[in-house]
């Protein structure tokens, strides 16, 4: 039926038309041209590789002491490239393992915050009106409170459990994501292409899934990327204070805390984990900034 009047000149229409470049591809191209961001990506990949396969390549385990080497400074001969701690545990193995935990916390907590934030924000933005007002008021209220104190409170009362930590950080980090997603949803809802879709009889779910969500991807990706370093820092902050990851498990924050206590006699116990943490934060920061510049090119 639609072929009615179109069929006749169908022969001279070539359907293998050249591909266009979508906004996302454009952003990706800008991202790839950003030297700092690409450095960040390379660093992060190296860190992830080291944290995931590194420990299994080492002759030492993160928790078993090397009875022949206590408080050994970094050296190549002893095989303890980063030295050992007071209990004779290999610092390299511990640092890599700690990086793994810190990355895992960051990943899980970011996922939790993205899921909660996007759902909450998209609902509030799309429903609008009073419901939106009430939902955002709720976010404002929680936002006004120092969430890290809540995490500490939870840790104190319910015991120090790594998974609770993941969930608690994630469940409290979603606020900004919810605000961003809600703002974006509101502004997309007012765009004329949404009106065009409504005018051509498209159903509400189709509008949400075809027109709203694809256009939310950019801001969500940017903000999620900016959330990861926040969470890494928060986790290490809590672990440093003794409310996060507990012995014998370890994270970068825990390592730094124990290193800081003895840094005058065994400085390597501080500097190596600190170096890893700083490198991790730096690479994440570069990636986040790079993504923001790529999706939202302005004169920064």
């Amino acid at each position: 039926m639609i072929g009615r009047s179109y069929r006749e000149n169908a022969a001279d229409i070539d359907l293998t038309a050249p591909k266009g470049r979508s906004l996302k591809q454009d952003a990706l191209r800008r991202f790839r041209n950003n030297k700092a961001a690409m450095t960040g990506v390379v660093l992060l990949i190296l860190l992830i590789l080291a944290a995931s396969v590194g420990p299994s390549l080492l002759p030492f385990n993160y928790e078993d002491p090397d009875w022949s080497a206590f408080r050994v400074p970094p050296s190549i001969e002893s095989g303890h490239y980063f030295g050992t701690d007071q209990n004779g545990r290999d610092l390299l193995a511990r640092t890599l393992y700690g990086t793994r935990i810190s990355l895992a916390v960051a990943l899980v907590a970011t996922l939790v915050s993205v899921v909660i934030g996007v759902t909450f924000g998209a609902f509030a933005g799309y429903l609008g009106g009073r419901i939106d007002q009430a939902m955002m008021r709720f976010v404002d209220i929680i936002y006004a409170l120092p969430y890290i104190l809540f995490v500490i409170l939870l840790m104190v009362i319910f015991g120090r459990n790594v998974f609770l930590l993941f969930a608690a950080i994630g469940a409290l980090e979603w606020l900004t994501m919810a605000r961003i997603v809600r703002g974006q949803t509101l502004s997309i809802r007012q765009r004329e292409y949404i009106e065009a879709a409504r005018a051509s009889g498209q159903s509400t779910p189709a509008i949400i899934f075809r027109h709203i969500i694809p256009n939310l991807v950019g801001p969500v990706v940017i903000y999620a990327a900016l959330t990861v370093p926040e969470i890494v820092a928060t986790e290490s902050f809590l672990s440093y204070l003794g409310f996060g990851v507990q012995e014998p498990l370890t994270s970068l924050g825990t390592l730094i805390a124990s290193g800081a206590n003895v840094f005058e006699v065994m400085p390597w116990l501080l500097w190596f984990p600190a170096g890893f943490l700083v490198t991790l934060l730096l690479s994440l920061l570069f990636i986040g900034d790079g993504l923001r510049d790529a999706f939202d090119p302005k004169d920064h």
Binding site: S22, R191, E192, Y193, E195, A196, H211, P214, N215
Partner: peptide
């Protein structure tokens, strides 16, 4: 019943061809 809008860019979904 169809409609054509003022701002050509804003009336097209930027993530669709």
């Amino acid at each position: 019943l169809q409609i054509v809008f003022q701002d050509p860019m804003a009336s097209l979904n930027p993530s669709m061809t």
